[in-house]
Design a binder for these strands. Structure first.
Length: 369
DNA sequence: AATGGGTCCAACCGCCACATG
DNA sequence: TCATGTGGCGGTTGGACCCAT
């Protein structure tokens, strides 16, 4: 039970992927698109199960992945979304372009969870810990340097911890939920550039937009033959068609601050999805009525429009379109198989946040590089 | 240099939902 | 209605890596 038939076959490789396997999978997907995962290993010449191939593509190989540290904005967004959605990592990831559910889940478990605990906040309920829970936590955090006095760790008012307020703060940069940061650290965070998920593709399109550094040197600075997992600084690996998978350093990337409209787009996108979702199971809005009400109000107050002109709005607009197109999805595996040109069938690609301009022509750039 | 403990994350596992025959 | 195949999700874990000793 639960195990796919393809996984039952013998002689299937497990564990870390080799550069050769990555290249095979990447080249196959870029040529024929995403279709029936169970047949991908055979067609791509891999000794892996389809599920493993799917995971590798989604979490690692797909070109629109944003790698590197999470920005403060992303962190705040994850915090807020987790408060509403809980451990629904896939839904949370849908609101963070270029991030995978696995990545967010890992980030939550390794960093954000601990951060909240240090602040005396229950990471599950996002409410202040009880005295008993605090004692328990103190037992766990034996090193004195890890202990933050409860009164210091808590935000100034407990009201800031409510779902509705959490989202309200997201809409206003000047009132960003600071998660208990000191003034000094907050300054650092607020000044920290956020990674631009689309800069890579903009480079390919030759788009120069005010506020974005699309210079050749900038883009090339992020290009490495392969990622650090497999070779570190060794550049002897690499495939001709491989996009940049290198970790990005915030110091090297262009500035992209979420404007109010952007935040509104994010939350509204979430709201839209949840409305759709709740129409089927009625869970979210009833479970988090305050959050739902607040989001609804925010949309009205912000004069929200799907016709946003900035880049992030476009991105989310595409996200919505992609979601819609998925609902009426006509792209089939057969279509994917019939593709003869070098493009990725992103219509059938389940994750959102992909650039509309991700075409075969763009992948040619990889080969040229 | 060796080693032991902690952290991080890529990948696996088990389950569920849905489509299809 | 049932069996089977597949996609997708969240939880868990093994091992690589880092750092202090």
């Amino acid at each position: 039970m639960g195990r796919h038939s393809c996984c039952l076959k013998q002689k299937l490789r497990k564990g870390l992927w080799s550069p050769e396997e990555d290249e095979k999978l990447f080249n196959y997907i870029t040529r024929f698109g995403v279709g029936c995962w169970s047949s991908v290993p055979k067609l791509a010449g891999l000794q892996r199960c389809g599920k493993s191939c799917r995971l590798r593509w989604i979490n690692y190989l797909r070109p629109d992945l944003k790698r590197g540290m999470f920005s403060q904005q992303e962190e705040d967004l994850i915090m807020s979304l987790h408060e509403v959605l809980g451990n629904r990592w896939a839904q949370i990831a849908a609101q963070l372009p270029g991030r995978t559910d696995n990545e967010i889940k890992n980030f939550w478990n390794s960093c954000l969870k601990k951060k909240l605990l240090k602040q005396g906040i229950d990471p599950t309920t996002h409410k202040p810990l009880t005295e008993a829970q605090i004692k328990e936590e103190k037992k766990d955090m034996e090193t004195p340097s890890m202990q933050i006095p409860f009164s210091q760790g808590l935000p100034t008012t407990t009201a800031t911890l409510t779902s509705s307020q959490g989202f309200a703060l997201l809409l206003n940069d000047s009132n960003f939920y600071d998660g208990g940061l000191t003034e000094a650290s907050r300054e650092v965070f607020m000044g920290k550039p956020a990674l631009d998920p689309l800069s890579y593709f903009e480079f390919q399109m030759g788009v120069t937009q005010s506020g974005y550094n699309s210079s050749l040197s900038h883009c090339l600075s992020g290009l490495k033959p392969f990622d650090q997992n497999h070779l570190g600084t060794n550049s002897s690996y690499g495939f001709s068609s491989m996009p940049s998978l290198a970790n990005s350093d915030h110091r090297n990337v262009s500035m992209t601050q979420f404007s109010d409209n952007n935040s509104a787009s994010k939350i509204s996108s979430l709201f839209m999805n949840e409305v759709k979702d709740s129409s089927s199971n009625g869970s979210i809005m009833s479970t988090y009525p305050a959050a739902g009400c607040q989001i609804s109000n925010m949309m009205e107050n912000a004069g929200f429009s799907w016709e946003g002109e900035n880049k992030m709005d476009s991105l989310f607009q595409f996200h919505v379109n992609a979601t819609k197109s998925e609902e009426i999805k006509t792209t089939s595996w057969q279509q994917g198989q019939l593709q003869t040109h070098s493009s990725i069938d992103f219509n059938s690609y389940p994750l959102t946040s992909l650039s509309e301009d991700l075409t075969g022509a763009n992948f040619d750039v990889f080969q040229q590089i």
